[in-house]
Each structure stands twice: as structure tokens, then as C-alpha cells.
Simulated assay, not measured.
Amino acid sequence: MGEEHKTSIGSSVIPIVNKLQDIFAPFGDLSKIKLPQVAVIGSQSSGKSSVLEALVGRDFLPRGSDICTRRPLILQLENRSLKNGDGDDSTSSEWGEFLHLSKKRFYDFSAIRREIQAETDREAGSNKGVSDKPIRLKISSPHVLNITLVDLPGITKVPVGDQPRDIEAKIRGMIMSYIMHETSIILAVTPANTDLATSDALEMAKSADPDGSRTIGVITKLDIMDRGTNACNFLLGKVVPLHLGYIGVVNRSQADINQNRALHKLLQVKRTSFIIIL
């Protein structure tokens, strides 16, 4: 009974938080508003997009070899099976809605990806520019948890395109503005084929959360580690300890992405190996 009560409280609070975010959005930088959320951080090409799409179970984020996340994406996930009386089939229908396109529902998740790209270009330009003005997207589905996620631009070192010379400092400042609040859970994403001790994501997380009490480490790309190596020490927290521990993720291959193989089908094939939790 106690667990059911806790679940009920959490399910009722998150929609209120989402509504507050929508109300405050027109008035400026939402990162200054201390509302509960999960911020996903990591270096460019660290696998952040794969982690987010695995949580949603759908392909909807822009992909490419260059910087793809160029504006913060506030992603509100809403479990429709907890809603009643909305007039729709709560067991099958799922859609996305953007705050800047009120009352327009996207049932095609490829169209959601195109709109994220188009809205990014409108604000940050089409030549790899970066903006701190967030895009707000709500996804309603019976297959997601009630949770608010923030996808932030990947940490990059060298400016390209229209990016300013101090692009690294700007992105780090943008990330810190979201993760410094005690109400933020930090998902620090690091590829398994890099040195965890030099992880940009864990470095920033430690600055915002010195005791590691609200940081979850995510180790991606486990399947492309060099032969003879493994991530056991990483996942067991022996290199960089975290109170909340680590999650290991096997990402989709680039061939899977290029061939548009649906994420939910790959999850069925790789259900025993796609996500490893220790």
C-alpha cells in the first residue's frame, strides 16, 4: 500500500511540474527555475541520443557525425495509461507536442525529428551554431515513465561553423546552469572506450554534485571496447565512485541507424544485452 501511495504522489506531482515549466517558459531561462528534472550530459558523440531514445523507445532525435544537440531540449514524458477520460485509446496511441506549435500533435516520430532540427536552425542557424534557448517537447505514450528529461549540447573543444571561439566555455556554462540545482538528477554519459578518469561529463557532474549523491553514471558503447579489456571496474564504481552507481548501455550500430531499423524491434532482439544494470 505504501509503494502504491508513493507512486500515486509521484505521478500526480510530475504533471504539475510540467505545467509550471510551460507557464514559465515564455518569461526566459528555465534553467534558473529549480524544478525537478533529469539532465543528460556528455561529450559530443558520447551516445546521449541513444540513451534518451532508449528511455522513450522511439527514434526521434537528430543524428549525425557533427554536433546535433545545439539547443537544450526539455523532454516531458507523460504516461497516458495513468490518464482517464481523454477520449483516446490509452493503450496504443502515442504522440509528441511542441510548446512552440500549440495544439499540433505529431504521430510520426520522424516528423518530430525534422521539427527539432528545423526549430534548432531557426534559432541557432544552420551552420552548427548553438543557442541556450530551449525547445520544449512533450511525448505522451503508454510506454514511458512520467519524467522530465533535459538533453543538453555535447561538450566540444574546437569551434566549427558559426560557433564562437569560446564555444567550450559557453556549453559548459549552459550545462552547469541546469545541473547545479539540487533538484536535478544528473545522467553523466561516458563512452566505455575512453578513460573514465578524464570524462568531461563526470568532471562537470562532480563540480555540481561533489558528493555524487544525485549523479548516475552511464557507460555507453560497451560493445566496441578493445579486445582484452572490459568495463567491470567502471561499472562497479572502482574508478570514479558514485552513490547511485552506473548503468552500462550497448548502443545501436551506425548501420542500424542508417537502415532505420526501429528501436523497439532492436530492443526485442537485444533484450538481454541492450542495457546492463549493476
Rank of each mutant, 00 (worst) to 15 (best):
L187V: 07
Q268C: 06
R261D: 02
P159G: 12
V189G: 00
D29P: 07
A54D: 10
N258W: 02
R227L: 11
V17A: 06
G64K: 09
I276P: 02
M176L: 15
D195A: 07
E3Y: 15
I147G: 05
I216E: 01
N230W: 08
R71T: 05
S140K: 05
D22M: 08
S126E: 13
I247F: 06
T183W: 00
M1S: 15
A111I: 05
V249N: 00
S140N: 10
I185R: 01
M1E: 09
K32G: 00
N260M: 08
M204Y: 06
N79L: 13
L20T: 09
I175Y: 02
Y246C: 07
D166L: 06
R80M: 14
F60T: 01
P72Y: 09
P164G: 14
F109Q: 02
K133D: 13
L20P: 02
K221T: 07
E115C: 10
S8R: 12
R63V: 01
V269K: 15
V13P: 04
I186W: 06
V13S: 10
S213I: 08
L242Y: 11
V158G: 04
A39M: 06
T148R: 14
N230M: 07
I186F: 09
H243Y: 03
G2I: 04
S253I: 06
S102V: 08
T194H: 13
E53H: 05
S45H: 06
K206G: 13
G10L: 00
S131Q: 08
S213C: 07
F24N: 02
T215K: 14
D121I: 10
D108W: 02
R105A: 12
S126V: 05
M180C: 11
N251I: 10
K157R: 15
L152A: 09
A169K: 14
L187T: 03
D211H: 00
S65A: 11
S141D: 03
Q37V: 13
H5I: 14
N260Y: 03
I112L: 11
K138D: 05
V40M: 12
Q268G: 11
K221L: 13
P72D: 02
L145E: 14
